[in-house]
Design a protein around this nucleic acid. Structure first.
Lengths: 247, 247
DNA sequence: CGGCTAGTTGAAGACACTCAACGAGCGTGG
DNA sequence: CCACGCTCGTTGAGTGTCTTCAACTAGCCG
């Protein structure tokens, strides 16, 4: 359980107002957690473009809920804290995902970037006035609900190794998730893991030591080969997939 | 882990086509898990009204996703199965909640009624053609996402007793969830628990024995008094709330 | 070099799981 | 009517997985 306060770097709000340059789709697969092809912005709907550094806070638990955010590029994590400091990372989001939705006046989750990120914010009034924005948000929510369902299965029913394997599979484009394309010829990939062990643990409902042990276990099994920095080579994607418990 | 096949009673589809009687809001608090005041049906939007017995299957994992469902009355549980039979109950839904949403052609969850239920189904074409229905669904999804977030915290970070306490608090109208009204004078309530221990366990990511032990523990502490059938008296709601870990 | 953070690994312990026995409640049928 | 079978819930004993606590290493930056 992470009891120590986590560093929250000062907000870097380089928020130039809306400009009409088209969103960049090239970097959609940052982190491998772009799950969907919905990083398109409804034409002519003025949202405010924001640029964030890696590991900056976009919203804090308790902030006034004035806007809804859509990720164009980069990765964001949503988390919640229990009063005694236990943290759960709720969702890992990539481009096309939406966050900042709440039924109350305040945000009930914390949102931090994992990588440098381009985010569009729509304030409440804008959203309420635009069916196009609403439709886009609804489509996003649907996909994220399904991801939350899968994550509930992971948290409720999977072993530590299954959790870590599932997490790693999620980082592989086109595999593991809904649109898994199945085994391919040369079945190995290198992925970036831009989370610390503590963050992975908080996402998977484990401790950092258990996550570390699971990684080591998979490495001893020959399924993982550690690379430079946060690079990990998955030696046999299909074999790893069978460890997830989902297939 | 529940390995044995669960009984799925024959589907009781008493689906009289749309009639114009207004939805009954009286029974909104069936089960205490009506979290929101959104059991209203957009006027003039023809959905198909369905009546279900308790414990009948509304949708099965793998069914074609032809419609979206909104609960008018009663309680529904959504669940997912892992290939080896482990089950996770993903959401407990009350009146006003929506289910059957998916990004794929097939449903990825199973939906069963817990109590007799009145449900309206809107088929895909209807939903796509009606902004009013879409807006209603979006509003529901937002609330359900927040509930899923809370549940992820429970599954990832709470102890067995905290989980059971949280579950019980959820059954108390106006308490525990988002709109908690805080302590009241005579702080005890009787709630119905229309789930078996196995179902509670599958919802909370525990085993039925652990759930049973947690109930017994809370009873020995004087927080619960068992009643007839599935009735449980919560002797001190505020005290139980402090066991949830959330406050 | 020293200090810091992130990650790994070991040993011991706690919490939840597994397996098993037993009891209460309920409907069926002799 | 009671015996019987069945399901659901409770409780105990033993086990296993994950956590906790702690030591140690690698990499990075001043």
């Amino acid at each position: 359980m992470s009891l120590e306060a986590r560093s929250t770097r000062p907000l870097h709000n380089d928020n130039r107002d809306f400009d009409s340059t088209p969103p960049k789709h090239d970097a959609r697969w940052t982190l491998g957690i772009c799950r969907h092809d919905r990083a398109s912005e409804p034409a002519g709907k003025p949202g405010r473009h924001l640029d964030f550094d890696a590991r900056s806070t976009v919203i804090d638990e308790g902030d006034d809920a004035r806007a809804v955010y859509v990720i164009l590029e980069g990765a964001v994590m949503l988390s919640k804290l229990l009063p005694d400091g236990r943290r759960q990372i709720i969702e890992l989001l990539g481009s096309g995902d939406v966050f900042g939705l709440t039924t109350t006046r305040q945000h009930d989750t914390c949102a931090e970037t994992l990588t440098p990120a381009k985010i569009v914010s729509y304030d409440r009034a804008t959203v309420e006035g635009s069916p196009a924005v609403q439709a886009m948000i609804a489509e996003c929510m649907k996909a994220q609900m399904c991801a939350l369902h899968d994550h509930a299965v992971l948290l409720g029913r999977k072993s530590a190794i299954e959790r870590v394997a599932t997490f790693l599979m999620r980082l592989v484009p086109d595999r593991g998730g809904q649109g898994c394309i199945g085994p391919v010829a040369k079945d190995q990939t290198s992925v970036r893991v831009p989370l610390t062990r503590q963050e992975i643990a908080d996402y998977l409902g484990l401790t950092l030591e258990t996550v570390s042990r699971a990684f080591s276990h998979l490495r001893r099994e020959g399924l993982l080969i550690y690379g430079r920095h946060d690079e990990v080579m998955i030696a046999n994607v299909c074999k790893l997939c069978r460890v997830t418990g989902s297939h």
